[in-house]
């Protein structure tokens, strides 16, 4: 219904377009609004526009190491894109990206939400323990990912030792094509849980206790309160957490790169590790195809971003 409302009530989405339709008071408000946005706009232009442009430009030219240095690479249009889309690595890498992202997000979010609800019931040491959950984020990824590789080592890893202790056979976590993708996914879930926990916890704290009191007066059970009060009120925070989680997971390459280099035999190669391997993981860098794969990832994120904005609009018809 609201979507068919006349144009002026919808939030305009473009800086371009006709003159401001509202009165002079509105115009002053618009100036104030943009006043607050000046720093961020300048910042975006200064720091992101150039790398973004650079990534686009790299993907549209045929770069060799020589033309990279001399700056005279010929423009080749979408040749690099065609090259990576028809490469035998593309389809498996895309599939691995989907599995890695979906499984990571599902577990990170569910575990994060469960923990947030748990920690929301204040108990002795709860704040301290919640803070300790963030410790993995203090470690440079090279350390945390190496530690995971250490624990998952086929021969001297502690996980296989533990499996042995309970009578299960060893698993070649990182060296078997059947397991490598699961291993890096597990490590990535571990990295992502604290993020979900902390953001969702703040989201829970923003829900007014009065709402719960009202629900309790209505005789709602714990589950009903969660289902009909917590979840709907947490939806905006959940949506942004999932969206950011998606962007970060699509982008993950260091964990996989450090743990398996995308192997063995490409079995844990995602689009982002492939992009890195093409552009930087070899003695002879292939900047063009590497950037093309990177831009395909950006396009995927863009699609989900549009989806998010659409969903947000539907909820928020103001």
């Amino acid at each position: 219904m609201t979507r068919t409302a006349p144009a002026p009530t919808r939030r305009p989405a473009s800086t371009r377009g006709g003159p401001v339709r509202q009165g002079p008071g509105h115009r002053r408000a618009a100036w104030a609004a943009w006043g607050f946005l000046v720093p961020i706009t300048a910042y975006l232009l200064a720091f992101y526009a150039y790398p973004m442009y650079r990534n686009l430009e790299l993907s549209l030219r045929h770069y060799t190491v020589r033309s990279f240095v001399q700056g005279d690479a010929p423009f080749t249009g979408f040749a690099n894109y065609l090259k990576v889309l028809t490469d035998a690595t593309f389809v498996p890498a895309l599939w691995h990206t989907v599995v890695f992202t979906v499984v990571s997000l599902a577990f990170q979010f569910t575990l994060g939400l469960g923990l947030a609800l748990f920690f929301a019931r204040h108990f002795p040491l709860s704040a301290t323990l919640r803070a300790l959950f963030l410790v993995p984020w203090l470690l440079p990824l090279i350390v945390s990912a190496s530690t995971w590789a250490w624990m998952l080592n086929s021969d001297s890893g502690v996980i296989n030792a533990a499996l042995g202790a309970i009578g299960a056979g060893p698993v070649n976590w990182l060296t078997s094509p059947d397991w490598s993708l699961w291993s890096v996914t597990i490590a990535n879930i571990w990295i992502g849980v604290p993020f979900n926990l902390v953001v969702l916890y703040s989201g829970l704290q923003a829900i007014s206790p009065a709402v719960y009191e009202a629900a309790a007066l209505d005789g709602a059970t714990g589950w009903q309160r969660f289902r009909h009060v917590t979840l709907p009120l947490l939806r905006p925070v959940s949506a942004i957490t999932l969206l950011l989680g998606l962007v970060y997971t699509l982008k993950v390459f260091d964990i996989i790169w450090i743990m398996t280099k995308g192997g063995p035999s490409g079995s844990s190669t995602t689009l982002s590790t492939w992009s890195y391997r093409l552009g930087f993981g070899n003695l002879v860098p292939a900047f063009g195809p590497g950037a093309a794969v990177g831009n395909i990832l950006i396009a995927i994120a863009l699609a989900f971003g549009l989806l998010y904005i659409r969903l947000q609009r539907r909820q928020d018809p103001s």
Binding site: T15, L45, A46, A49
Partner: peptide, 11 residues
């Protein structure tokens, strides 16, 4: 448009 403006500045 933002991108293009950024390129002008950075390039």
């Amino acid at each position: 448009a933002l991108l293009a403006a950024g390129c002008l500045a950075a390039c």
